[in-house]
Write a protein that binds this DNA or RNA. Structure first.
Length: 675
DNA sequence: GCTTACATTGTTTTT
DNA sequence: CAATGTAAGC
């Protein structure tokens, strides 16, 4: 497909820093793909010197697919396309000695992190969920701003912050002694390393000869710092972003980084992409009008040449079940009338839980569907169990994994025994696993407990030795040794359920095997690497005909960013759901509006919005208003399902009132700033 | 130490 | 209404 003038410019400008402001559907992925191809084919870059970074695994996977499709497997060998976190992992993996950590660190997901913090803060917070989460986001913010615990303690103001900083210190110490990294460390550590170590910095700057960053508006401070360190003075990079699609501010994303770029690189070449190739005129118009309600860092006007297109449907329902049914029925009818594929449809929602009812209806209708982005696979108990075993296999000092694993299946080691072991471990400042060999245990544990504990620990120790030279055989022996299959038959409600769960485990093992063998990728992963990548959910989907499969796509709005579908359903367009209640309370409507904007602009041909007037919550039902965003859309382009149910005069009035309040608030904000 | 029955608690989004 | 945590019984 041919490129338009601005796209062409964006592709061919490779001599310095380049910012591409790419509106929704303006072909930014096409620009990135073509630019990579251009760098390889015309500028004769070696693929291994080109790095492209995205924010989600899905985006990375899709980009990888498209580039291999267009250039061929051979031509793209060595090309690095990954998420920020995977890139960070790669750097740490290669430079672990310089970072000052063991090669077999384990990676904590947020669940592990919570558990550890809960334990560390027991004496102060007494397991208070709210406080622990506050602490967690506080630590995360510190890490994102490149502040270590010592600095945090020095800078802390007030009692609470000092306590938090103290907890941060404890957390950091625990991380060091158990060899544990969290997600933020994957960015923080490489950034600090490159900042402080000139040799390593030069080495990586020499590796990363061209850097491309997708969804740049989602970068946080440390990620931007990492970018600057990687590109160095050569400053050969392209970042692509759109401030209207910034939907991650809650996790530290700074869309202002778009502006900072201009200051940090005065010779920055800024290119705007304003031609939309995705959506019908009507959908684009609706999106533009919606987002007009927000303030902007950069102004841009998207236009489409695809024709005006069909009306935007609005389905009204009395309750959520009714809504799910209407959506699915609409989909079935539409597919039949248009002779379309199921795979052409996407159903998008704000929160993961909203997929449940839709799933139920789709199942009843025997419609194939696929939920992506959701945590389902990795939140399955059997997968968590096996993952914990694998993590312990890689890093015997991973206490969280140890605790999860020690009594699954039952080994007669319960809380009491664990408590005693934990106390001894505390005084020795050793991991639980190492403490299990301590001679003093004979005095505090009964002979029976001791034999079962030591039996396990010795067996597992030998297993981890074996894993050093032959990981797969150790894994198979592990599965056999714990007799996980029988355990599942014991604990599952039915044999069929047990078989399902066993199949999940087999799937995991197959992935692991493929990763260790290096099928489909450049170099085989080590066991450590593979386990860390599982935690990041960064793996190649290898369901043979993955993209051939004809399934309705279900995902959150966040997960849908960067994707497009001919027919899109955006469900739960109701106050409290799409502007989410917490965002309404915090008066952060702008990000919710961007979220709606992202959803709307996923649609190519037909957009259908739905909401229900009632919602069942905690068993009680409550009334819902249609989302304010519905009233912000151009009403002439909407087709309300229940006849001519245009917004009532009262609703228009209410909406006008809130609009006015919003504008007043913005004015006040602007005035404060200028003072 | 494990199982069962009861009570409590809670809903954003992701690497 | 779940899913998860807690107390009492085995």
């Amino acid at each position: 497909m041919r490129l338009n003038l601005s796209q062409q410019q964006a592709v061919e400008f490779v001599s310095g820093p380049c910012l591409v402001l790419a509106g929704a559907g303006s072909g930014k992925t096409r620009v990135i793909i073509n630019k990579i191809a251009y760098l390889i084919k015309v500028k004769e870059y070696q693929p291994k010197h080109i790095f492209a970074v995205t924010f989600t695994n899905k985006a990375a996977r899709e980009m990888k697919e498209r580039i291999t499709h267009s250039l061929g497997r051979q031509e793209t060998r060595g090309l690095k396309i990954s998420t920020f976190h995977t890139l960070g992992l790669d750097i740490i993996r290669k430079e672990y000695k310089q970072v000052g950590i063991k090669s077999n660190f384990s990676l904590f997901d947020d669940h592990d992190q919570f558990a550890l913090l809960k334990e560390l803060t027991e004496q102060w917070f007494d397991g208070d969920k709210e406080l622990i989460n506050q602490l967690r986001s506080c630590i995360s913010n510190w890490k994102n701003d490149l502040v270590d615990s010592t600095l945090a303690m020095a800078k802390a103001q007030g009692k609470k912050e000092q306590l938090f900083a103290h907890c941060y210190k404890l957390y950091e110490q625990q991380q060091k002694s158990c060899g544990i990294l969290d997600f933020d460390d994957l960015i923080l550590l490489p950034t600090l390393l490159l900042k402080n170590n000139e040799t390593v910095r030069e080495k990586w700057q020499n590796r990363v000869r061209y850097l491309l960053v997708d969804e740049y508006q989602d970068t946080n401070t440390s990620q931007y710092e990492l970018i600057k360190l990687l590109v160095g003075h050569r400053a050969k990079f392209t970042v692509v972003g759109d401030d209207d699609q910034s939907i991650y501010s809650w996790r530290g994303a700074r869309p202002q980084n778009l502006v900072l770029l201009n200051q940090d690189f005065p010779n920055l070449n800024v290119i705007k992409l304003e031609q939309n190739y995705r959506s019908s005129g009507r959908i684009l118009k609706a999106a533009n009008i919606l987002i007009e309600n927000n303030p902007h860092l950069f102004s841009k006007t998207l236009h489409s040449e695809l024709g005006y297109g069909e009306y935007i449907n609005v389905l009204s329902a009395n309750n959520e079940e009714d809504e799910a049914e209407k959506v699915v029925n609409h989909l079935i009818g539409h597919r039949f009338a248009n002779n379309a594929r199921y795979g052409d449809y996407a159903i998008l929602y704000r929160g993961n839980h909203q997929s449940r009812l839709i799933e139920k209806m789709l199942m009843q209708g025997r419609i194939p569907y696929k939920i992506s982005g959701g945590t389902s696979f990795f939140s399955r108990i059997e997968i968590k169990d096996i993952m914990a075993y694998l993590r312990l296999l890689v890093n015997l000092d991973d206490d969280n994994a140890f605790i999860r694993v020690i009594n699954t299946p039952k080994r007669e080691i319960g809380p009491a025994t664990l408590q005693k072991l934990g106390e001894l471990a505390g005084t020795r400042s050793l991991s639980l696993f190492k403490t299990a060999f301590d001679g003093e245990l004979t005095e505090i544990l009964s002979a029976k407990r001791l034999t079962s504990l030591q039996g396990f620990v010795e067996w597992f120790n030998q297993l981890s030795q074996q894993a050093q030279h032959d990981p797969m055989s150790a894994v198979y022996e592990l599965l056999q040794g714990i007799d996980y299959e029988s355990w599942m038959y014991e604990t599952s409600s039915s044999p069929t359920a047990a078989q399902m769960r066993m199949k999940n485990v087999e799937q995991l093992i197959t992935w692991l095997d493929d990763m260790l063998k290096g099928n489909d990728i450049d170099e085989p992963y080590t066991l450590e690497d593979a386990v860390a990548r599982f935690t990041l959910r960064d793996m190649l989907e290898r369901n043979e005909n993955e993209d051939e499969q004809d399934e309705v796509q279900l995902m959150t709005l966040h997960a849908s960013k960067g994707l497009e579908f001919p027919y899109v359903y955006l469900i739960g367009m109701a106050e409290g759901l799409l502007p989410h209640q917490t965002s309404i309370d915090e008066e952060n409507i702008e990000e919710e509006r961007r979220l709606a904007y992202v959803g709307i602009t996923r649609a190519q041909r037909v957009l259908t919005l739905s909401y229900s007037r009632e919602r069942k919550q905690f068993g009680e039902s409550s009334q819902l208003e249609p989302s304010r965003f519905l009233f912000e859309l151009p009403q002439d382009d909407l087709n309300w399902s229940n006849g001519r149910q245009q917004p009532t005069a009262e609703q228009r009035f209410e909406h006008g009132k809130s609009r006015l309040a919003l504008i007043k608030a913005q004015l006040a904000k602007a005035r404060n700033k200028s003072d």
